[in-house]
Amino acid sequence: MRLKFTKMHGLGNDFVMVDGITQRVKLSPEKVRQIADRHTGIGCDQLLLVEAPRNPDVDFRYRIYNADGSEVENCGNGARCFARFVRDRRLTSKEHILVETAAGILELKVQEKDQVSVDMGAPVLEPSDVPFQADIQAESYPLEVDGETYNVGAVSMGNPHAVLLVDDVTKAPVDSLGAAIESHPRFPARVNVGFLQIEERGKARLRVFERGVGETRACGTGACAAMVSARLRGLVDDEVQITLPGGTLTIHWPGPGEPVTMTGPTASVYHGQIIL
């Protein structure tokens, strides 16, 4: 199979974008891993597949595959790249795009200077829906990991996130603790793990260990979940600049029941073809 693709990134969180509308695409977990391999393939954090929608009220269907071949529900940085990709490839001329995902419908708005805003929907806070094992909903939960107890927020932005507050994000044990929490039995679907440092009420720093990927330079849903968790604890205002290793996102959330809006840049790197 000869596959045309575009390599893109949002704040260094990199993606292989595949148009499944104008070409026939048949992907297996093995093929996704082959494409994502940074030594023998193209290399990416995630592969994003554009398909025709099943819902007649939206413009596209959007499928997301981690580098390990697993399919996941949502990706904020990927959603922004998706909006630019479908316009660059002339699949649409709209600036306001509705996209069907496994987590529901996303609203994407293309702005000037390669900025894209994404209506990520309202965060899910009920533990059983994250999913997370807890008796009642709370702002944070004690979680025992390797004999130590950590307080974590549990938020779903269409995919599950655990959020830990740290004093210095540069010293956070992202690889070791992130991996341990990712597969913690209280998160039955595994979990993305955010390490959040609050600088002031409108500014924070974040590193994210993504399930099935490891630490990435940026994670849009992770930034949204981190802001929600911090706001629930009364630590930030309703708009926060969150700086990740790859750059800065603006996250706006008025409060429970309201949608989270994420705004940030996108970049197209190159187009190519690969034979699988």
Rank of each mutant, 00 (worst) to 15 (best):
A67R: 13
G202E: 06
F187E: 01
K109G: 00
I136R: 15
E258G: 00
G272K: 07
R87P: 02
A218M: 08
L3D: 00
V16W: 03
K109T: 13
P245M: 05
R87I: 10
Q46S: 02
A52V: 00
G76Y: 04
D168I: 08
V145R: 02
V110W: 11
I97N: 05
G220F: 03
Q46R: 08
Y65P: 01
D37V: 03
K203S: 12
L49C: 06
Q46W: 07
D14C: 04
H184N: 09
A226R: 02
P127L: 10
E126R: 15
H39L: 03
G272C: 06
R24N: 12
H184R: 07
S183D: 00
L206W: 13
R38M: 10
K4Y: 09
L249V: 10
G257H: 09
D57S: 15
P256R: 13
Q46T: 03
I274D: 01
L48E: 10
P259F: 12
V110S: 10
P127T: 08
P123T: 07
V174M: 11
F82I: 07
P29L: 08
H252A: 15
P127K: 12
G76I: 07
R24T: 15
M8D: 01
I64W: 01
R38A: 05
V18A: 06
D68F: 14
V208M: 08
I242S: 02
E51C: 13
S268D: 00
L3C: 02
E239C: 11
R231S: 06
I242W: 09
A122Y: 10
R207G: 10
P123M: 05
L232T: 00
L249M: 07
T6Q: 13
L91G: 05
L91M: 13
Q111V: 01
D37A: 10
L235A: 00
A230N: 08
D19Q: 04
F132I: 10
Q23C: 07
N77P: 13
L27F: 11
R2A: 01
K26W: 04
V32I: 15
Q273D: 13
E71G: 01
R190G: 00
L244E: 14
E73Q: 14
M227C: 15
C44I: 02
D175T: 12
V228D: 02
H96S: 12
K7H: 03
L47P: 05
V260N: 05
E148C: 07
G121T: 11
S28F: 06
V16C: 10
P53G: 04
R190N: 09
V118G: 04
D146N: 14
D88R: 15
V169M: 06
G257F: 13
F60A: 04
D88W: 05
E215W: 06
I198N: 05
I136L: 13
P173R: 04
L108R: 12
R63C: 01
I242K: 09
M17C: 03
P160C: 02
T149L: 09
G104C: 08
R87L: 10
G158V: 11
A162Y: 06
L177I: 13
Y141W: 09
I21C: 09
R2T: 11
A189W: 12
A218T: 10
L49S: 03
N159Q: 05
V163A: 07
E239L: 01
V213R: 06
P245I: 08
V50D: 03
Q273V: 08
M227S: 04
I136H: 14
V32R: 04
G212Y: 12
R61P: 02
R205L: 13
L177A: 12
R63E: 08
A225E: 00
C224Q: 02
